[in-house]
Design a protein around this nucleic acid. Structure first.
Lengths: 343, 343
DNA sequence: TTGTAAGCGTTATCAG
DNA sequence: CTGATAACGCTTACAA
């Protein structure tokens, strides 16, 4: 593979001049510029990111950390779309994306933090991390510019972007109430994640505000995935007084819940109305189609990038703390036309 | 951030010795080793991948190209899992993953090939590319070691891994036949992709072998996504003689087909049996649960990595051409217990 | 067992 | 407008 010295020789100028041309600097005669460009073309030149990074001290690399469960099949579809938003935004800005996993087992000592450092990434986008992730502290302690998705990171150089989970949960409960549900349960997300606790909080706040029955038995612990949704719903249906509406903290668990309901020979939404959270691709394809709180996943991804690059450009600026609005999407798993909430 | 010179100074040795210690070379006294390691620890040293890559001429970076449609929401869930397999395998081998998109619009001149070259990736894993991708030729022409997923790349340094699509399609058709279907249609994948043409070929071969009616009207063009599955099925049901079984070239289109059937007030599998391809997470969650041809997605990902690294280690070795076996998974969308294919 | 020094491919400073 | 040249952080002969 050719380098700027070869270009310099072939076009009869110095490497400095070649560098100037290649970087679009002004103050180079048109004639030399043409010669250099021609030589570069002929040699099929491609610059070396490593050499550049070494001297400029900027890698133009962003570490994107995707912390997912162990079972790949069970990766949450939500992240896929956020990642796509991140990727496209990064592309547009000329940054490259180093995808880092959180598979601590196989990586051994080689955590995503170490890999980020080794590659001198300019910044990090952290997805899927809970409060319990041991590496996070290290990451912000290092002062490596970081934007977390779905985790309220706060640091000199660390901020976050996430959906308005509390408001989303409130919307869901209010909608169920407007559909005529009088006993509204919830299946929660993981309690060591921000979305988990925030959606539970939103549920509780709205239950209280609407003066709906607030009972511990109506709250089942889940983990955002199908199985716990299924199990939680089975438990709810086994109650002496089962709920007539349920808010699941994720679409996946809502789908599990719907399955449990239908397995009991009950109907959605007539017997139990269901509202999920996320609006993953399959929410609309379920039968009945799932009413849900839509997260603007692409916006979350691109906002994370925007915020991160802003931090890079203006170090003293305060780190981002961004809430992306959510939206209620009414489909067949709840009432079609919300009636008024007459007692 | 500290470097080996600082470590050298602090521990009173030369940079060469530090390098030796850090790389686990033998022939260093235990005493110096300890001193160096201690100094490195104190300085919280992290090696520079760029500097290393520059001198060793190995980046330990693999470019993973994910060519997806424009609409992120419509990304196929299949790739997510393959990507996970790739990521974990790469992790285990100490390689890092540069995620490259194919968004030609926004990337402009900066294609995934150029980015790969700039970063001096040691190899490339190409996913989602069809026959029509203009960059592919460039990629193999460059001699950059490449393994394509779902595309029969052949080159001095280019090979492929993909599912046994022909066999999978045959299995699907045979199963439908065993379920008693006598008029079996198909909704195809994109004709500019290997899985698209291979699954169609498998369908045709098995239709012929089983002496089932072979008619052009039973073959509807699709693109692996939900909408074409839905549309194709609607067309099939509008036929004078509609099919009683359909093989969709992907689970997504199978789901679309099921929806079309149910919208007509018909039942799956009683009126029309449906078999998909992929076994994505949601196949099992559909109602009825979808019978499908399971691709071993994780294996495809890790095989691609294994094959690529093998090429890197042994350049003269012939490039890989790997077929990963598929498997019929019978669920509710076809007959539960395949009856014998009595005329 | 250890040190010296020559690169790897760039950019950037400083002269001219 | 152009050219030398010193870094950037590391590995690796080659010497000692």
């Amino acid at each position: 593979m050719s380098n700027i010295r070869e270009i310099a020789e072939r076009s009869g100028v110095s490497v400095a001049t070649v560098s100037r041309v290649l970087n679009g600097f002004t103050g180079v005669s048109d004639e030399t510029r043409k010669k250099v460009l021609a030589a570069a073309e002929e040699l099929d030149y491609a610059p070396s990111a490593a050499a550049r990074a070494l001297v400029t001290r900027r890698s133009l690399l962003i570490g994107v950390v995707l912390l997912t469960g162990d079972q790949p099949e069970f990766q949450h579809p939500y992240f896929q779309v956020v990642l796509d938003g991140v990727k496209n935004a990064l592309d547009r800005e000329g940054y490259d994306l180093l995808l880092l996993g959180g598979d601590v087992e196989s990586s051994g000592e080689d955590t995503y933090v170490e890999r980020s450092r080794r590659h001198r990434v300019d910044g990090v986008i952290l997805m899927g991390a809970g409060f319990d992730n041991p590496e996070v502290e290290r990451l912000v302690g290092l002062g490596l510019p970081t934007v977390a998705v779905d985790l309220e990171l706060q640091g000199k150089r660390a901020g976050f972007v996430s959906s308005d989970n509390v408001e989303g949960a409130r919307l869901a409960v209010r909608h169920l109430h407007e559909c005529g549900c009088r006993r509204v349960a919830t299946i929660t997300g993981m309690s060591h994640t921000s979305p988990g606790v925030e959606r539970l909080r939103g549920y509780e706040l709205e239950i209280k505000k609407l003066k709906l029955p607030k009972q511990a038995e109506l709250v089942r612990a889940g983990d955002f995935y199908v199985e716990t949704g299924h199990r939680g719903m089975k438990e709810l249906l086994a109650l002496a007084e089962p709920p007539d509406g349920v808010f699941a903290a994720s679409d996946l668990s809502a789908l599990g819940a719907m399955r449990a309901i239908q397995e009991q020979g009950l109907r959605v939404p007539e017997d139990v109305a269901v509202v999920g959270f996320d609006d993953i691709q399959f929410a609309a394809l379920a039968s009945p189609p799932l009413t849900t709180i839509r997260q603007n996943k692409v916006a979350i991804g691109s906002e994370a990038v925007r915020a991160l690059l802003a931090m890079l450009e203006d170090p003293p600026a305060p780190p981002p703390a961004i809430r992306v609005p959510v939206e209620l999407v009414v489909r067949g798993s709840s009432c079609r036309a919300p009636r008024s909430a007459a007692g």
